[in-house]
Each structure stands twice: as C-alpha cells, then as structure tokens.
Design a protein around this nucleic acid. Structure first.
Length: 562
RNA sequence: GCCUCGGUAGCUCAAUGGCAGAGCGCUAGUUUCGUAAACUAGAGGUUGAGGGUUCAACUCCCUCCCGGGGCUCCA
C-alpha cells in the first residue's frame, strides 16, 4: 500500500463520471474541506487489513502532531504499478474509513472508482508532504546492468564526518567497516572485534552474577511462527522474508518466539520461576534504507537480550534488580542516561485493562528505584509497555539503548503455563529486556563518549613496546615476549623510525601504555613507561608493571594507572 | 521509502569539458635517533556501476547502488 500524505489548507474535488465497474453510488457531487490531513491511497495486491490499520494509526498519530482534526481519504491508484483488483481494493479502502472513524478525527473520503477533478492547496512546512509504504517486503530494484567486478570491494564512504564521529575514529583505529554489497551489516576488523568481544565478556560475567542462563536459537523460522508471535501482522515490513522451496521463512528480528519455544519444551513449576534466559544471537531487521546510520542503526545486530519468565507477583522485584543492573552496566563507562516510560500504541495486541496493569507495574518499579523518567505516550511495543533508556551521541542525538518490556501477550499466544502451589496451571508473564540494546549501537555511543580512548581492559592493543635504536631491539623483543606470555595484548615497534614518530603513532592509536626501551633500560634491566595521558615513569621493573596492569584489566578500571 | 548533499589512490582531499594530482600511509634504500611527524626514491586509479550527449566526460544528462544530514521508523 502506497500513501501520499499531504497537509492542506484546502482540498476540493468533483465527481465527473464512474471510471470502473466497481464504484461507489449515491455520493455527493462536490466536496470541499479545509485544514485537513489528506491521504492519497493506492491499495496494492497482497495488502491486508493490518497494513490498513497501521496506515490509519500512523496518519492519526501524525494529525495529532500537526493539530489537524479533519482527515480525508482519497483513493489514488496512480501511486503504484502493482494494484489490487478493484473490489478488494475498495473493501480495504472502506475498512480504513471505518478504522479512522473510531478515532476523534472527523473523517471524509473521496468515492472509489470515479473520475474526479481535484484541487489541493498544500501547506509549505517541511512535514506537509510525506510518502509512506506499507506491505510486503519491498521490491528489489535491480540496476539494468550491474558491474560485478570492482564495485564488490567498495567500502562505505565516510568522508567529511567530524573527528568526533564513531566512524572517523573507527577508520583511524581500524575497528570496522561497511561494504556496499551488504548495507547495514558490520565487518568487525580485528581491533573492533576485541572491543565487541570484551564488552560481551563483561555482560556475560554480569549475567552470571545475576543468575541468568545463556541459550542459543535458530536465526530463521517458518512464517507460521511469526504468525503466532504477531510479527507478521505488526512487523512484516521490517522482516527479511524469503521462499525456500515452498516454505516461507523469515529471518528473526527478535528472539522472543524462540525463547517461548524453549520454555514450552517441559512442564514448568512455580519453583522454576523466575527463569532468566539470555540469548545473544544476531538479529535481522530490514530497516528502510534512509534509516541506516553507521553503527547506530544497522540491519544485522546483536542484542544483549534476555527473557524472564515469572509469576505476576515477582514482577516488581525483578524490575527492581534489573534497574540496579542497568545502573551498574552504564556506570562503568560513566554514561548519562535518560529513562522513559512508553505506553500503549494504537497498533497493539490485547485489551486495555491488561495494558494498564503492566504499565503501572513498570511505573512503580521506576518510582521505587527513584529513577526520574519521562512519559512517552503510545510508543510501547505492540505486545507491551516498556521502559527505555536513551543515551546521547556526539551530535547530541538521542538513541534508545536499554528497553525493558512487560509482556502478557506472547505467553498467552504461545500458551505458556506453570504448575502453581495449588497444583493448577497458571500463565507466567514475560519480561523482555536488553540493557545495552544493540551492541553495535552501544559501541558507537561508547566510541564517541570515550573519543577512542578505551579503558585498558577493552583496548585492542594494551601495551606497545618501542625500541629507541637498533641496540635495544633484542631487549625490546624480550620484554614483548614476556608481556605476551602474561596474556597482555601487546605490539612491538622495532622499526627504524625515530622515537618521536613511534610515540606519535602510539598516541594516535590511543594505545594506553607505551614501554620505551633504550640502552639505559637495557643496561639496568628495567623499563620506562609512558601512558596515553602523557605521564611517564622511568626505572620500573617489568614484573611490577605486569602485576599492576593485570589488576587494572581484571577490575575493568576506567582510569589508567598513570 | 521521502527531501537534501555527496562518492576521484588504503586514508584526507585537489583537478570543472582537453595529459588524473598532492599530503599521509605502503614498499625499497639511507639514517640509529630519549618522549607527538628524519631524508631520498618507487609502487599504487576501469574517477561507485550502467547508459546517453560530445571530436573529447572525473567534469554535462538519465537510471541504479552506496554513504552523510533531515523526516518517518526504531535497538
């Protein structure tokens, strides 16, 4: 379904003659509406009521922002070359009118199937003209003839970005890249992978401390599963769906349905709850091309995802612990975050009473933890309300990282049960949550927040050993080997460049420590150290440095020791 | 997906219808240096892809791809 949305001062249309066999009879000859949001609608083959509802919900939402009270629906076939046959198109069009009439908006429409004369007077502001597309996976546009040789190895072009941007820093430190043939999917280079991996290890350590269990699940499933979970109705636009020899499969945009399936493999007891199940698989979301933005929004992402199956009376305690864990995870990087509570969206599953119950549980937990929060009306997930945590990037834009969602819908759809103390079957509720959100996005925030100065425990290279002249090469190599044996990530610079050059290079790479070795150190069997912050110490013993370093790394300190 | 600005060597950028260039990086040689850039030389390009206009296209036109910013959406 294609929609052209216009914010107008005035729209006028007049019926000339019926154009199709299917057309609306007994319609007013002429209409004129002032101050309205107009939707020109082309119904395409395969469109269903879910798209129609979503389109109307979005339009009403938008009308609210623009403070318009009149909504005009106008059938307009010319937006698409893939039209639905007229009778079905008209039915869906009428369904949309009824949907719109449920709102507070005053709804008008132009009749289906007529030749009409039309006059529109569009307002001039930036949001006055907008197009939208709802429906099946977007049609792939293929270039007439594509060069398959050179273009394959084409990197994304990040020229002109400010020095503080995570992409510029990634280029300097060789952290990751994107390629034209895989838009929105990250290539982690060795340096970047260390950062990604260290962050993962840190989260896993934390989850162990908080009694989580890790699972791994498939990355795709028959669309039958996505029908049960509701993703087909509410998320299809963003899914990669493809045909595999008669089976329609969808790559997973979320882990939830798989967690439900694991839960259902056995009878569960109330004694098993709460059960905290974490799943860090890659997820695939077919984001519209204009939405992609460096590591901030990608199509292939990793979440520090977990689902907590629990009794309703355990919700508050779980939420409280979770908010504590969140503060710990963000605290280590000294990141400021902003909490938000999002309520029921127009497109949602389940009844309002249940939503009300879930929303107030979240609110209580926030208040109990004395966390200040903003209210975001109608921004919840389709299956439940949520607490979000937003963090700012280097340009001051806010990105959603953590999200904690209380869900009564999926347990019901998947028929989850546990046996209670009373011996009867009860339905558990599920807490979906990611705390860093997408690892990709969080790393982008981190790179910009730290400006590439990673704490030693995450640094791709923790120590670089620099020799001052040929005479110290051997000694430098010895020191390098000893550090390596101690599992320190270390590099050796025995090139014939000047010391100044080597130091500059190490500084630009933001290596936390440089060990500088010349004849003096060689003779005295000691070392000199220079930290990234420019401080230096001479005459240290290697052993004492190693033990200090190991402590700094093990404790994941955010400050360098000198 | 929409609006808008871009895509030239690994990176950052010049060249504007008429011989595709510089700095850094890389390679080789010289140099052996004490806390943020030693010197010399060399290699490195289907100018994002495809088509068109022209005697001639990196340059002008069209389509597509990718990226930046803004919408929309969202982790």
């Amino acid at each position: 379904m294609k929609i052209l949305q216009l914010d107008v001062n005035k729209i006028e249309f007049e019926l000339i003659k019926p154009e199709l066999e299917t057309y609306e009879r007994d319609q007013p000859k002429r209409s004129e509406i002032d101050e309205a949001l107009v939707l020109f609608i082309a119904v395409e083959s395969g469109d269903n009521e879910a798209f129609g509802s979503k389109a109307i919900a979005d339009a009403i939402d938008f009308a609210g922002k623009l403070k318009r009270h009149n909504l005009v629906l106008y059938p307009f076939a010319h937006l698409s070359s893939n039209l639905e046959e007229p009778q079905r198109a008209m039915n869906l069009f009428h369904y949309m009118i009824k949907e719109a009439e449920k709102s507070k908006m005053k709804v008008f429409h132009a009749p289906f199937g007529w030749n009409k004369s039309l006059k529109v007077d569009v307002k001039g502001h930036p949001l006055a003209e907008m197009s939208r597309n709802y429906g099946e996976a977007r049609e792939a546009k293929v270039a007439k003839k594509k060069g398959y040789n050179v273009a394959l190895a084409k990197k994304a072009d990040w020229a002109g970005l400010p020095d503080s941007d995570h992409r510029t820093i990634a280029e300097k430190q060789d952290l990751f890249s994107f390629q034209e043939v895989t838009p929105g999917m990250v290539y982690w280079h060795p340096n970047g992978y260390i950062i990604y991996d260290q962050l993962m290890k840190y989260i896993r350590d934390k989850l162990e401390e908080y009694d989580y269990q890790m699972v791994a699940t498939p990355i795709m499933a028959d669309t039958a599963l996505w029908h049960i979970s509701g993703h087909i109705d509410h998320y299809r636009e963003n899914m990669f769906i493809f045909d595999a020899g008669g089976h329609e499969l969808g790559l997973k945009p979320m882990n939830c349905p798989f967690a439900m399936l694991i839960y259902k493999t056995k009878k569960r007891s109330y004694r098993d709850l709460p059960w905290r199940m974490a799943d860090f698989d890659k997820l695939y979301r077919n984001e519209i091309s204009g939405a992609l933005s460096g590591l901030f929004r990608v199509r292939e992402l990793t979440q520090d995802d977990a689902h907590i199956f629990m009794r309703e009376d355990q919700a508050e305690a779980e939420l409280t612990t979770m908010l504590k864990l969140t503060s710990e995870l963000y605290g280590i990087f000294k990141l400021d975050f902003k909490a938000k509570l999002s309520t029921m969206p127009d497109s949602h599953l389940g009844d309002e009473a249940t939503w009300e119950k879930a929303t107030s549980a979240l609110k209580k937990a926030l208040e109990k933890n004395r966390i200040k929060f903003e209210l975001k009306e109608k921004e919840g997930a389709f299956y439940g309300p949520k607490i979000d945590v937003d963090v700012k990037d280097s340009m001051g834009r806010e990105w959603q990282c953590a999200t904690i969602q209380l869900d009564y819908q999926l347990p019901q759809r998947f028929g989850l049960e546990y046996t209670g103390e009373d011996g009867k079957q009860h339905m558990p509720i599920v807490l979906h949550r990611v705390l860093y959100g997408s690892l990709e996005r969080f790393i982008a925030i981190l790179i910009e927040h730290l400006q590439g100065k990673f704490p030693t425990w995450m640094s791709p290279v923790q120590v670089r050993v620099l020799s001052i002249s040929d005479k110290a090469h051997k000694y430098a190599e010895e020191v390098f080997k000893q550090l390596k044996a101690q599992h320190i990530r270390v590099e050796l610079d025995n090139s014939d460049k000047t010391l100044q050059y080597k130091i500059r290079d190490g500084q630009l790479q933001q290596v936390p420590y440089m060990i500088i070795l010349g004849e003096k150190e060689m003779d005295a069997k000691n070392i000199s150290v220079r930290s990234r912050s420019g401080k230096q110490k001479m005459g240290l013993s290697l052993d004492s440095l190693v033990s200090d370093l190991k402590k700094e790394i093990a404790e994941r300190k955010s400050e360098l020791m000198l």
